[in-house]
Design a protein around this nucleic acid. Structure first.
Length: 724
DNA sequence: CGAAAGGCTCTTTTT
DNA sequence: GAGCCTTTCG
């Protein structure tokens, strides 16, 4: 019993023991908030005797949920399986599949990701008679999302619209929602909104859930939005045992409508809430914390908060400027190799963080070139690859033939002679009959029907596709997921099709990778396996795939890095225009969010931080010159060790070549060399040192020899003489 | 209908 | 620099 409390400090212990009533925990980075939630749940189960069935814990990512589950397993054993533990979206999806019928949600619904959403939105814009090019789908999508976060139905929205734009949005929103319903699909925001609507419409259902969830904990509370807040308020309505944990300084998702005011609302809605501050940091050195503190406290809006550590003082943050993003990447790789060779850190202990995904390319290239192992947290994210989405579309359609987005995606992939014209006619015809497109296909296949006007060979193509899908649907009732997937890729002709494409081999490998994922669902009953798999692949987050056991450098966006920690952290692209991103320049609130993002990055580090910026960087094809990030100037000089101006290998070589012709008295040398030193080698003759890297028990020297070229030599064998 | 070629616009961050 | 869309031609 006591072992649950024994490893906690007094504030943490207080947070764990405050099990009745609302609790607000404000927890700085590295202060053990995940630990607090985990131990709190364990305490509820083991000490208070609460059944895990009555406990809910909401995390930000599936990975966080999985880790919490593992930790809890160690504390309470097999009982973890009865907990409700997951992201808001996953939990809501489950609620809606169980109980959504009351508000017209069919339990077989599919979930539309952003891409599906965009495609449906474009259609909606067209169908209400507007030009998708004139009304940016993104802007409308964002407005609709904002509406859903406030649980406004299209009807509510119409009543509130005050401007022409809102008028447009309300029309599109209405049609979009209709199309979703017809497709038996929900988008990400629907999952949350519909759950809240369900509870509003059905007090009995709500009461059932309220009775079940006697204890609710929410992690990363600073990044919840209004609809998530409402959901928690509803669920906790009976017992009020709600524990939320967050850090306003780490709020970085306002663009997803996360709202810091939730923290204020919490204090207002639950005036008796117990406030607990976790201020002791166990992660970082004093200097890192101090550096981070200077960055965050330059914010005008912020409430001051304490954060301290007993850890050692540590080393200064290193600020380095390079010429281009390629040299930035080279610097990072070189520095990591150096630290690793010196035994200061393992590859897995290093992370490179950046503001935008596009920045990963230069880094990846450098890592590949130097042969340094790395793991990229989902570049062009796996599940968004075309071939993966295609296969998933087949499976979605098998699961739910009303899914028009998936139908349109694959009806002609591989080509079956079904073109735009045909599709337009099909969808018009289906609409006029008030049936789904899939049902329309079924009608065409019935020989007696001749009202449709498709020419025989086109009708044959359509029916061919229908028969294919019908076969899949029939077989899906008996085949396990892997066999079904194999059947689909074979019989649809997709395998042959993709192998004939450029990069076909690689794309096919990706599908095999998807097959590996499917294997986890192999042993479930056919219908269950398919539905669980589809939900799993739609609700994955990028960090979910991060494998901690692989010893390789992590390449990750600053957003994804939230909640993680590494001994050594490089933040690259420390430039105005990148961090803060140029899009935030005209909005002070967004600039503050960028600052917090920088803060999040620095506080991921346990031992060392590097802040790297490039003088010149190519962005969207063309080259730009950026000033060093304004956040760098918020760090006082005494906390910075300047790595100065760093030149990449090629430019070092160029510099070396320009400085030939020096006098030639030779001096033997036993220690290392530095770049620019003139040397003589028995075999290669005179040269100039480009770099000299200390290794485990030897050093590697790179030298350009006159008339010979560049050679990599090991210091102890090369017999280099220094030439003064 | 479909393949190929050329022109356009963007990229913030993600469940 | 890539992916999307349109246009053009077979």
């Amino acid at each position: 019993m006591t072992d649950i409390l024994v490893e906690l400090n007094s504030a943490q212990r207080e947070a764990v023991e405050a099990i009745s009533g609302p609790v607000l925990i404000l927890a700085g980075p590295g202060s053990g908030k995940t630990r607090v939630i985990t131990h709190r749940v364990a305490y509820l189960i083991k000490v208070c005797g609460i059944s895990p069935r009555h406990i809910m814990a909401v995390t930000f990512t599936n990975k966080a949920a999985r880790e919490m589950k593992e930790r809890l397993y160690r504390l309470v054993g097999g009982q973890v399986k009865d907990l409700t533990l997951g992201t808001f979206h996953a939990i809501c999806a489950r609620i809606l599949r169980m109980d959504g019928k009351g508000i017209g949600v069919d339990p077989r619904f599919v979930i539309y990701d952003e891409e599906d959403q965009e495609s449906l939105l474009k259609r909606s814009i067209g169908e209400v008679g507007l030009d998708p090019k004139q009304y940016a789908p993104r802007a409308i999508a964002s407005a609709i999302r904002a509406a859903k976060v406030r649980t406004l139905t299209p009807k509510d929205y119409v009543e509130r619209s005050r401007s022409y734009f809102e008028e447009v949005v309300s029309r599109v929103y209405e049609r979009y929602q209709q199309l979703l319903t017809e497709s038996n699909a929900l988008d990400f925001d629907d999952l949350l909104m519909k759950a809240v609507q369900l509870f509003r419409n059905s007090p009995e259902t709500l009461s059932r859930y309220q009775t079940r969830y006697q204890h609710i904990q929410v992690d990363e509370f600073q990044d919840t939005n209004l609809v998530q807040y409402e959901l928690i308020r509803q669920l906790g309505g009976k017992y009020g045992n709600i524990c939320v944990v967050g850090d306003p300084d780490q709020s970085i998702y306002s663009w997803r409508f996360a709202d810091l005011r939730n923290i204020l609302s919490f204090e207002k809605d639950y005036p008796k809430a117990k406030l607990i501050l976790l201020e002791q940091n166990y992660r970082s050195t004093k200097k890192i914390l101090e550096t981070a503190f200077h960055v965050i406290s330059a914010s005008p809006e912020r409430k001051p908060k304490g954060l301290w550590t007993k850890n050692e003082s540590g080393e200064l943050a290193t600020v380095v400027e390079t010429y281009t993003e390629q040299e930035e990447a080279q610097f990072v790789v070189n520095e990591i190799e150096r630290l690793v060779n010196q035994g200061k850190v393992s590859l897995g202990g290093c992370a490179v963080m950046y503001r935008t995904n596009a920045q990963s390319r230069a880094l990846e290239e450098a890592f590949v070139r130097y042969g340094t192992p790395y793991k990229l947290v989902a570049g062009t994210r796996f599940y968004q690859r075309r071939e993966i989405k295609d296969i998933i579309a087949y499976l979605k359609l098998i699961h739910n033939p009303y899914d028009t987005v998936s139908l349109l995606r694959i009806i002609n992939v591989p080509q079956r002679g079904i073109g735009q014209q045909t599709l337009a006619r099909l969808s018009g015809w289906a609409k006029s009959m008030g049936i789904s497109q899939y049902e329309a296909l079924r009608l065409i296949s019935e020989p007696k029907d001749d009202k449709q006007s498709f020419s025989p060979h086109i009708a044959r193509a359509l029916v061919g596709f229908l028969n294919l899908m019908e076969e899949f649907i029939a077989r899906s009732r008996e085949l396990n997921l892997v066999d079904l997937l194999d059947l689909v890729t074979e019989r649809s002709g997709y395998r042959e099709y993709i192998l004939g494409q450029p990069d076909g081999e690689e794309r096919w490998e990706n599908i095999l990778e998807l097959r590996t994922v499917a294997q986890q669902y192999r042993d479930l009953k056919p219908a269950e396996g398919l539905s669980a798999f589809l939900e799993g692949v739609t609700l994955v987050s990028d960090v979910d795939g991060l494998d901690e056991t692989v010893d390789a450098v992590t390449l990750i966006t600053l957003h994804q890095a939230k909640g993680l920690e590494f001994p050594v952290v490089f933040i690259v692209g420390m430039e105005d225009g990148i961090l803060p991103h140029i899009k935030s320049f005209d909005d002070p609130e967004q600039l503050e969010e960028e600052r917090r993002l920088c803060y999040v990055g620095i506080t991921r580090a346990k031992q060392r931080v590097y802040l790297v910026h490039a003088f010149r960087r190519s962005l969207m094809g063309s080259s730009t010159v950026n000033k060093p990030s304004r956040y760098l100037s918020d760090i006082p000089q005494h906390l910075i060790s300047s790595g100065g101006w760093w030149q990449g290998e090629e430019r070092q070589i160029a510099t070396a070549i320009y400085s030939w012709d020096k006098p030639s008295a030779s001096v033997p040398i036993t220690q290392g060399f530095k770049a620019g030193d003139h040397v003589r080698h028995d075999q290669f003759g005179d040269g100039v040192v480009v770099s000299c890297q200390p290794g485990k028990d030897d050093s590697e020297v790179v030298v350009v020899f006159k008339g010979v070229g560049v050679k990599k030599l090991s210091l102890s064998f090369a017999h280099l003489e220094k030439v003064e």
